[in-house]
Amino acid sequence: MCIDCGCNSHPGSAHQHDQHGHHHDGGTSRTIRIEEDLLAKNNRLAASNRARFRAVKILALNLVSSPGSGKTSLLERTLSDLAGRITFAVLEGDLQTTNDADRIAATGVPVKQLNTGAGCHLDAHMVGHGVEAFDLEATDILMIENVGNLVCPAAFDLGEDHKIVVLSVTEGEDKPLKYPQMFQAADLVLINKIDLLPYLQFNLEQCKEFTRQVNPLVEIIELSCHSGEGLATWYDWLSREFIRKRA
């Protein structure tokens, strides 16, 4: 039995709470005031995840993007380049397959695949159970690769320290205006695949301008995990946030 969520089961399975019928007297209708956020349960579980991560001083990052932005490739490169300096664990969210987890496992980093089935996002419940696979005491940074989707994951707090949006230059510079909830929820935007810029119509400055229109304070790093350009800035960001969490 899970203490946090009261479930008897594994992530993704159906819950049956409070579904027993009651039979009482009465028949007059009455109004009950409630005022509860629809995400209250997820937010409570996220707060519990956050407390667990804080207790062991893990930096938890939630990577979100549309499908095919290069999240997994960026992770592979990051894990390999920082091996021996920072200890990672990775949660991989996808509807189906263990393809991404297999790619991460090849780098030697502990990884757990979370398959959501038809679900469009990871939630705090899945992450809370997912990290049971790791030795959290021995982990510095937890990378959570969310389901490729720029809409739904914006609403679901997982207990992370930062949401990071990965946007690739093959997608079009107006993505931040089309999916403002996601870009507003992010603390960092990584503009990926910049090695392809000479072959595209992508207007990088316009993209940054659009990003700031929905999130004036967000940090933006341009990089390519293919050419390696910009990676040093990304690694500096990771080190800075990791040290801040340890302090």
């Binding site: 109004t31 409630i34 956020d37």
Partner: peptide, 29 residues
């Protein structure tokens, strides 16, 4: 969702209302 003020164009617009998703009340017997 934007931070651009439609009236003066500055990037200092704060969202006051519109991000709610709340269960407010129910009528029961």
């Amino acid at each position: 969702l934007t931070h651009v003020c439609p009236l003066c164009g500055s990037l200092a617009l704060e969202t006051m209302q519109g991000q709610e998703m709340k269960f407010t009340e129910m009528e029961v017997d």
